[in-house]
Design a protein around this nucleic acid. Structure first.
Lengths: 174, 174
DNA sequence: TATTGTTATACTCTATAACTATA
DNA sequence: TATAGTTATAGAGTATAACAATA
């Protein structure tokens, strides 16, 4: 899509921001832009691995969630909360997963409002095959050193906690 | 869209990955998932600030690029390379910016194939007003400490360089 | 022959609003 | 009244392919 650039565009933006007199904002602007760009690179790698499995990242996340439930079933609303996406996004993802026979909708035993989703046998197989390939081709050779991974996890966990993503589990110690 | 969770879903995924026997991949998987989630939080904040200005993040990036050119003009193809997006995405963004009278398309003096884009006076005003609000409301109070910003910039610059995002400018020293 | 840019088309994910059914 | 989920609709960004114009 694009050839490599001779200079780092984010470093240039940082310089431009400082020259414009926006000194206090320049460094965090550059860091945040780098996060946005890094996310794009990583999700492109992930989507490329998932595509031959007939999955998108959003749908893989649903399968992964179901794969690790104790009972094998999860309410739509709980999936929405855990994945932190709009309920209609879950409906959309589950519609397609159900059409592909990877998940099934079932009724809740006592609450008639609730729709439960469960993995089919094939859904479990597809999830684990996709996960194995993601592990081998993206996560195990991510380009981050173990120290990078530790630093990122520490910094981003604290950030997400401060942003209100979750409660109770305190950020890891300094 | 979602209430805060009682536990960190990424930490839980990390545990699940280890229990599944995917030990080498578990930690980088969690770090990468945290990057994806953090990017979502940040772009939501950015989009919320830009919306009243009639801008999306993609369109703001085009305006910011033009604001810092020496001549005030930039070829579509160069914008595509610098923003690292598909040429059709630039066409799309510029179509809308032009309709809003924030940029103009002009012909290149010597190369008939090239379309140049320039900021209108109003485009410059909108860009600087939006940037000022982004600085005040997102970047200057990002939730990252100065040390976080330095660490993120170091780690992500090296990652982007290794991913082939740019050449020549070496990653910052250890 | 290669490059630049546009058009047409399609496919994501996401979001709002209106709705049904149930608690 | 509040909650769970669906539907319809819309909008965003992104991508491929075909195409025109130019180098």
């Amino acid at each position: 899509m694009s050839s490599p650039l001779s200079r780092d565009p984010i470093a240039e933006a940082h310089t431009n921001w400082e020259r414009a007199g926006w000194r206090a904002a320049a460094a965090p602007m550059a860091a945040i832009t780098a996060i946005v760009r890094t996310e794009k690179i990583l999700t492109q790698r992930i989507e490329a691995v998932l595509k031959p499995h007939g999955l998108t990242f959003a749908r893989f996340e649903v399968l992964a969630l179901l794969n690790f439930t104790r009972t094998g079933a999860m309410a739509m609303s709980r999936a929405s909360r855990l994945l932190q996406v709009h309920p209609t996004s879950v409906t959309n993802a589950v519609d397609r997963l159900e059409r592909a026979a990877l998940v099934e909708r079932t009724a809740h035993a006592t609450d008639g409002r609730t729709t439960l989703i469960t993995l089919t046998a094939r859904g479990g197989e597809v999830m684990r095959a996709a996960a194995a390939e993601l592990n081998a081709r993206v996560f195990e050779d991510s380009g981050f050193t173990p120290q990078d991974v530790a630093d990122l996890t520490r910094i981003l966990t604290r950030f997400r906690h401060a942003a209100g993503d979750f409660h109770c589990a305190p950020p890891p110690p300094e």
